[in-house]
């Protein structure tokens, strides 16, 4: 699924990075636990999280995640944005709760990255 469509589904806005039309996202990982993310997440997955510190971006970088969406309208810190920019990672934010965000994406056909 194209990033633009995901943004529409989540009513999300961009915090940092360029929304690239050539990226196809098929899986989603949702967690506030970074070790969990490192355990299950697969490359090119969309990460939904409520954590907004730079560790999220470091984790995404190591796990090769290109897009992170922060839930409940949480705004990433300046350090997080700067690091995401350096690492070429796109940051979104949505007003949806974790449950709602997961539900909407699941209904739209995206799958859990553990399922793949």
């Amino acid at each position: 699924m194209k990033l633009e469509k995901i943004m529409k589904i989540l009513d999300a806005e961009v915090c940092c990075g360029t929304v690239r039309n050539d990226w196809d996202i098929t899986m989603v990982g949702a967690s506030d636990l970074m070790s969990d993310v490192l355990t299950f997440i697969q490359p090119d997955t969309l990460l939904l999280t409520g954590l907004i510190n730079p560790q999220v971006v470091r984790t995404a970088d190591v796990a090769e995640v290109k897009v992170i969406c922060f839930i409940r309208g949480k705004k990433p810190t300046e350090e997080t944005i700067k690091l995401a920019y350096d690492k070429d990672i796109v940051l979104f934010k949505t007003q949806c709760s974790m449950f709602k965000a997961c539900g909407r994406l699941y209904r739209a056909g995206l799958v859990d990255c553990l399922q793949k």
């Binding site: 636990l33 070790s35 969990d36 355990t39 954590l51």
Partner: peptide, 12 residues
Amino acid sequence: ELGFGAGIGLNN
């Protein structure tokens, strides 16, 4: 609070 310390690290 930083998203770590859940007893998964060494396993990972």
